[in-house]
Design a binder for these strands. Structure first.
Lengths: 166, 166
DNA sequence: TGGCATTAGTTAGTGAATCTAATTAGAATG
DNA sequence: CATTCTAATTAGATTCACTAACTAATGCCA
């Protein structure tokens, strides 16, 4: 797989539990924060998954948004970006195709490659998922204090850094 | 269910997609941040779930950590805290019991209630999950810049606020 | 006190999500 | 041209989580 497409990454590899790490130790409070962060992320993701609108699951919306963002990604690129394995993404895309939200096309230069693109309905679904009424997180964010909102951009950036491949 | 236990909450209810909300509109940049937050959380949770150590899944570790944190919670409290429905938590706890990590006890004052508590092995598993070698997030957090680390506590708190029941 | 409503947890059944192993087809290389 | 590598798919299995229905226990009120 070539890595010339913007935003593309290699397929996520299983993490090793036995790696040797020479870096300085993390303090206890940092370990505590890591533990709390882990709990919060897992819990929040459950909440997000519970929001199903118009028959479109959180997993599907996420994939649609990523397709929009990456612009006709290959199936492998999409899988890597979403942090799932290619067979998993094949299934997700098949479901989106059956729902009439995306189209798949063989790449003109490499016939092994399937490119995924939003069709008009898929675009609508993504837009709608971001509307005030349907966007669960947008609604919750309105309950934050002004200082908390200030921190929001930084929080999002930090989480995105954590998601990136090591 | 009484709500006198610290950290307890009612069972999460399905979100309504048709609620009327009179609050001021969120700006576009905030909507954008919400969308990015959503993607980051879902992706990061996938990464966390991919970390399986010693045969203990991310879901089990999360439940163990919450049991430790809440201190012999009722099954309902545990489910609410973890953002899953009671039947789901019954299954998780059954698995943990079979793995020899927790014990269940009928509450002395209300025989409907099952309290869950860590046994010695469960305590060990939670501690181990927080060690430098095994804590995926702790390892990743060490790659943050110093200013990012400064903000960490606040950002974790912000995420926890988002998880809380509306 | 008895009947009814409410509550806590469990069982049964189903579907979503994701992984690994294997396979197929296409591209690259010597 | 043969071999190796790569992208996606298929098949099978596991994990995770929901809903509906049920059982047992508790609380409340006439």
């Amino acid at each position: 797989m070539t890595t010339t497409t913007p935003g593309s990454a290699v397929t996520p590899t299983p993490a090793s539990s036995v790696e040797t790490d020479p870096r300085p130790a993390v303090s206890d409070s940092e370990t505590e924060l890591a533990a709390r962060l882990r709990l919060a992320v897992l819990r929040l993701s459950r909440r997000l998954r519970q929001q199903v609108a118009g028959g479109v699951t959180a997993t599907q919306v996420s994939a649609l948004a990523t397709i929009e963002r990456l612009g006709s990604p290959t199936l492998g690129e999409l899988a890597a970006s979403e942090q799932v394995r290619p067979p998993s993404m094949t299934k997700i895309v098949v479901g989106l195709e059956e729902a009439g939200l995306v189209n798949r096309q063989v790449d003109a230069e490499d016939r092994r490659v399937a490119r995924v693109m939003l069709n008009a309905e898929g675009r609508r679904v993504v837009q709608r998922s971001r509307s005030l009424r349907t966007a669960y997180l947008a609604r919750r964010l309105r309950r934050l204090s002004a200082p908390e909102r200030q921190s929001l951009g930084e929080l999002v950036r930090l989480l995105e850094v954590l998601v990136e491949e090591p």
